[in-house]
Design a protein around this nucleic acid. Structure first.
Lengths: 213, 213
DNA sequence: ACACTGCCAACTGTCGACAGTTAACAACTT
DNA sequence: AAGTTGTTAACTGTCGACAGTTGGCAGTGT
């Protein structure tokens, strides 16, 4: 993710730009990505752009169809459930590892992130970014680079989900309590409980994203 | 994985061929992949080959260095541990899901795979392939396509590990017992226990792959 | 012998052009 | 009118050539 910024070439820049276009919903769900058009728009040739498209496809931000190019995926409720099964698998494990390995510094960072969230919530704002920040502190505490990377990719797909569904994501108070429960379990080095709390937390977030049609 | 075979283009074929070259160790660990050389060897141009290289890099089978190309990763003990943290996260969750969702047909398939492994073990052979076959039946029972896909990718990286380390991988009897314990827990719809057994099983396999130097 | 400097070969990064495929539309048939 | 077939425009897939970068090596000086 931030690793991509080290990609100094045109392809790397194209990845960054395209990712932003997709995640902000500027390219709508289902919309196709025209290689020549986007390449001209970015002022590069098709080669690097193709590379960028394939890269984002490998992250699940685009889907490829042979001879038909790439388009932003449209996700139904089953897709949402499948995605959260993946995210829950990864992030519950991360919570368990964090409970086993956390230092006091990790704990302090998590508490700080939680406090910032509560403060923002008190003033009526609880942006998605703060929730992600908390989850990131937990990832740091887990000290498992591969798991962390996959968590980030899964979280990114959730962001895309929100961008396409245009769901106003005001976190509920319950999420704040979940976070604190997480901190408690991790403080107590209780890996099992941390994993369970994380799974319950993500189930709650998932249900927010399921369309009730 | 098998999906790649549907990639009818040259790039798709190149992915299949290159993957085999890497997984069989024909391209050794640490060895660099020369774009022009391999492209000529495959009778294609650099474009599709580049695409294939980037694809395998996204699967973790190659690592890219700016302006220096791709090479087969060399993994130390820490890397092995990190990989198995990921695999354990994914596959323990798969076991939990399998315990919740398995049908009788799933159970039959798992028992059949286990029986085949025991039979082969009795004759002195317990190829890696049979172990993978068992794990695949479990994945099918979990009915979680995204988790299944990530599990396959992680397993593939373990295969690469074995290819590069040239470790003779004779499964231990303990693995057979683990499999049966897994079947028991899944039969009883005991998700927690299935997850725990899977984690213990993978820890055993991991320790086999750690170099004791 | 060692360190530094300036080449140089090999490679990756990028580009523009061509070939192949697809889906949509128009024309024709029944 | 509905279905079928031919045509075509827009796109992706592929290629060969050029530009840029890197690491090594010969050469020079100390």
């Amino acid at each position: 993710m931030m690793v991509d910024l080290v990609h100094t070439g045109l392809a790397g820049q194209a990845v960054a730009v395209l990712r932003e276009l997709v995640l902000t919903g500027e390219i709508a769900a289902g919309e196709r990505v025209n290689e020549v058009g986007v390449a001209q728009r970015l002022g590069i040739s098709r080669g690097p752009l193709r590379e960028a498209i394939r890269h984002l496809a490998s992250e699940g931000l685009l889907v490829l169809t042979p001879n038909r190019g790439a388009h932003v995926p449209v996700t139904d409720n089953d897709g949402v459930r499948a995605l959260f099964e993946l995210r829950s698998a990864l992030e519950s494990a991360a919570a368990r590892l964090a409970a086993e390995r956390r230092t006091d510094a990790d704990l302090a960072a998590m508490k700080e992130a939680s406090a910032a969230s509560r403060e923002a919530f008190a003033t009526g704002e609880f942006p998605y970014r703060l929730d992600l920040a908390f989850h990131r502190t937990l990832l740091d505490a887990a000290r498992s680079p591969l798991v962390a990377e996959q968590v980030r990719l899964a979280q990114q797909r959730v962001i895309l989900l929100r961008a396409t569904k245009e769901v106003a994501f005001s976190h509920e108070r319950a999420s704040l309590d979940d976070h604190d429960a997480l901190i408690e379990a991790i403080t107590a080095h209780d890996g099992d409980r941390a994993g369970q709390v994380m799974a319950a937390h993500l189930a709650r977030v998932r249900d927010q994203l399921l369309t009730t049609s």
